[in-house]
Design a protein around this nucleic acid. Structure first.
Lengths: 253, 253
DNA sequence: CGGTGTCTTGAATACCATCAAGTCTTGTGG
DNA sequence: CCACAAGACTTGATGGTATTCAAGACACCG
């Protein structure tokens, strides 16, 4: 809840804004990077009210189905997720959001979200005014094209998920989800063949809801992975111990 | 194989081109429509070599994983599908393509497809030179934005599929797939509450591969739908007999 | 008229879900 | 700081949904 305090104090918010952008963990290929580049800025330091910094604690919603959003949120720090709730109470997570990601690209065009976005850890995000951001993007053909590429990438990731859910057994799905996240967090680290350790704030029910399984089954498969010496996972920290064998479980070449 | 003949005869190809565009069945909101509008043309009648008309018979590939495509295909007539093949021989269909659809939006940026595209019926498509089409699109902010909206729409459909595969039982998935196709083919027709009949060239294995089931199980559930008087399906023709009850099976409000 | 593709139906099986009980951790208010 | 409640994880027993296997009917095509 430190964030709420910061929002209430202009001087500190400014400080945080600088910190968050200079120490930004967003990946090179993220939306933030593309946008900052296009605006000839070191990062996306734009005056209000074009953007605003906001912070929410873990487990709080950033937006929900019935909301009407005048601003488009982009994650600066922490983990979030987008997903939908079904009438029977079950949940499907559509994607995990890391720094640099749009909360939902659709929000650029429609103030009504078609999925919820929820913070997993404490999350800091920037909220851009929709109209300003849209004008900015489409006025510049180069920027529009680079962003379209990012969306095509997102579509590709969604297609991978469809394949996982439609045609892969449970163990494979879990391994692929984990490897995909590790690759996003530490690009290329899996190639070395040496163990890779990352922060991993997901609960087992997050994994379950992302790949269409129950938490119970996820637990059983994770303990099996551990027994086989493939991974270590505890205290919000994940280590891929045997990258080669774990990739084999995931059916990755 | 009539198409090969047509391609070899300039006069006939021109005739076919006019026929296909004036009698185009692409929906209002399709890419073709948006593009034609932007170019101030009745339809997308653009001289070669910017575009070319091609035709393939049913069950033939339009493109495959290892191909290198200099042109971007857009479906003019017939049904096609995009999907991926897995190492164990199974297949996941990612989407069914109807007139007006990009074979794969990713092809606008990358000559190497990340999925195959296969004709289901005989298919006629236009192949636009990638560079020309891209320049055309991104030079016009309005066009770029309208296309981005279409991609966001596609992403939304992919997300729906993820929810279906992750959290819905088999009967619900089949019903939703069918209703989604009918809605694309005859927008609004389901609202009337009266029976709706459409051409339906899909085989049961297409349905199975699209929603992560086996053809055997699809067969069993379809015969159950028939027994319950929900649908009629034979001779490549589908009728939704009881739209209200069938929508209930699909869990649609 | 054999071959291939499609669909149907029944029986056996496998995978994952559900149910249930218990441990451990985390958070909270007294 | 402790007591209590809630959440997270584990493990075993049981059950259901969908798969696999198999056999046969039917249509279409060369």
């Amino acid at each position: 809840m430190t964030s709420a305090v910061l929002v209430a104090r202009p001087r500190e918010r400014a400080a945080v804004r600088n910190i968050s952008c200079s120490a930004c963990t967003a990946r090179e290929q993220s939306f933030c990077h593309v946008l900052a580049h296009a605006m000839n800025l070191p990062r996306v330091e734009v005056p209000r009210p074009v953007q605003e910094i906001r912070t929410v604690p873990a487990r709080r919603f950033i937006c929900r189905k019935p909301d009407f959003l005048t601003h488009v949120p982009i994650i600066c720090r922490g983990w979030a997720m987008s997903g939908v709730l079904l009438s029977d109470g079950s949940r499907q997570i559509l994607s995990f959001l890391l720094p640099g990601d749009f909360a939902s690209p659709a929000l650029l065009f429609d103030p009504r979200p078609n999925c919820f976005v929820e913070a997993i850890t404490d999350v800091t995000y920037r909220a851009f005014r929709r109209g300003d951001l849209k004008d900015l993007i489409f006025a510049d053909p180069d920027l529009a094209e680079r962003l379209s590429r990012l969306w095509v990438d997102e579509k590709r990731r969604a297609d991978e998920t469809i394949v996982d859910l439609g045609r892969r057994p449970a163990a494979e799905r879990i391994a692929r989800l984990i490897l995909g996240l590790v690759e996003r967090l530490e690009p290329g680290a899996l190639g070395s063949g040496r163990p890779v350790e990352v922060e991993f704030p997901l609960r087992q029910h997050h994994i379950a809801d992302a790949i269409g399984l129950t938490p119970v089954h996820v637990s059983k498969l994770l303990t099996e992975f551990r027994r086989n010496g493939l991974i270590r996972l505890s205290e919000r920290s994940l280590t891929i111990l045997d990258t080669a064998r774990f990739r084999a479980v995931a059916q990755l070449r």
